[in-house]
């Protein structure tokens, strides 16, 4: 298992050469005709700028400010954090579906990138978020899917997308649809790291396997894991996903975050783990430090002191309230 802090080899270039040909047509060309906007390069490039950082779920401007002050590299706007989505039941939608001002208030409150979730397949929610200048869209299994067969065609948007994945095939299918950033799904809203670890180990293990296959064997493997061949070949060559890969779904402590970094993730998303804990500001800052100093147990010990109570975790079994969100997405 790679505990190395530098597996990130010019991700953009790998992705650009592999995906750029399909995503290459610029969505819009600036007036001068001499510059391109919405290229795969700037989409995956922003994800590269987020590396080594923590993206925090927030439900209002006040929480967004707490996250920014704690050192978040971006915030994720949504109506309810995943733990509350589980508890509330019903249909979970894009954040501004009920309150259109909420996202705008968050955008105005902070200077860091603002991301927001849309339902799987709900391309109109994505069009709305693009029009109000959101920096990144998460097509997320945490919300109730709008389409049980198709994901959004993300190439047609100027705004970049991040998507969840449980294994290499799923990650490469999302990249093929235009995702410029992947996160492991984990099991959101549980405060239980076990699924995030399972998914990251699955992705990393499958890439290691692919990296030693011959080209003939890669064709077969692509069929087996239902991955586009050219992207599988690129991942095998790079020995990593061709885009940035964060961990998500169950991170509740600084040690959880450092664990995912040592397993080879480029950064972490923290959802319920911060604002469902006893002292959100302190815990948020400690997780930010943990992602930077993930290979330094001495610093990890110092920053883990006196953080107050973590969120109450859930056992992931057949009785899990709200069900297994990670199984959504295809």
């Amino acid at each position: 298992m790679s505990a190395s802090p530098q597996p990130q080899i010019q991700v953009l270039q790998g992705a650009g050469s592999a995906v750029g040909s399909t995503a290459g047509a610029p969505t819009r060309v600036k007036d001068a005709g001499n510059s391109n906007m919405g290229t795969f390069g700037v989409k995956s490039g922003l994800a590269q700028m987020l590396k080594g950082g923590v993206i925090m779920d927030v439900v209002n401007a006040e929480q967004a400010r707490i996250a920014e002050e704690a050192g978040a590299c971006a915030v994720m706007a949504l109506e309810r954090v995943p733990a509350d989505i589980r508890a509330a039941g019903g249909v979970a939608r894009m954040a501004s579906a009920s309150d259109p001002h909420m996202i705008k208030e968050i955008v105005e409150a902070v200077s860091i990138p603002v991301m927001a979730k849309v339902r799987i397949g709900h391309f109109v929610e994505a069009q709305i978020l693009q029009s109000i200048g959101i920096d990144y869209i998460d097509e997320s299994e945490v919300l109730t899917p709008a389409d049980e067969e198709h994901h959004i065609n993300k190439h047609t948007f100027k705004v970049p997308f991040v998507c969840g994945a449980r294994n290499l095939g799923e990650a490469l299918r999302r990249i093929s649809e235009g995702a410029s950033f992947i996160r492991t799904k984990g099991e959101a809203g549980t405060g239980n790291i076990v699924e995030a670890v399972r998914h990251q180990r699955a992705v990393a293990g499958e890439i290691r396997k692919a990296s030693v296959l011959t080209e003939e064997e890669l064709y077969v493997y692509a069929k087996d894991i239902q991955a586009p061949f050219h992207l599988l070949k690129e991942a095998a060559r790079l020995k990593r996903l061709p885009v940035v890969n964060f961990a998500a779904g169950g991170i509740a402590t600084p040690a959880d975050a450092a664990l995912m970094m040592q397993l080879g993730c480029d950064g972490v998303f923290v959802g319920s783990g911060i604002f469902k804990s006893g002292d959100p500001a302190k815990r948020a800052r400690a997780i930010v430090q943990a992602v930077t100093h993930f290979n330094n147990p001495k610093i990890l010990a110092e920053i883990s002191e006196n953080l107050g109570a973590p969120m109450v975790g859930l056992t992931i079994d057949a009785n899990l309230e709200g069900g297994r969100l990670a199984q959504r997405g295809w």
Binding site: K30, N34, S35, N36, M37, G38, T39, G41, V42, G45, L46, R65, E68, E69, V107, A109, V110, S111, I112, P113, Q130, G133, I134, D135, Y136, K158, V159, P160
Partner: peptide, 29 residues
């Protein structure tokens, strides 16, 4: 950032953060 932010300084220049706007204005040239 609201309330200011830490800088290292050292280069005599004033810079505007996010001068082009949000990510949808990002570009290559």
């Amino acid at each position: 950032k609201k309330g200011g932010q830490e800088l290292v300084g050292g280069v005599s220049v004033k810079i505007t953060r996010n001068g082009w706007g949000s990510q949808v204005e990002s570009f290559e040239a």
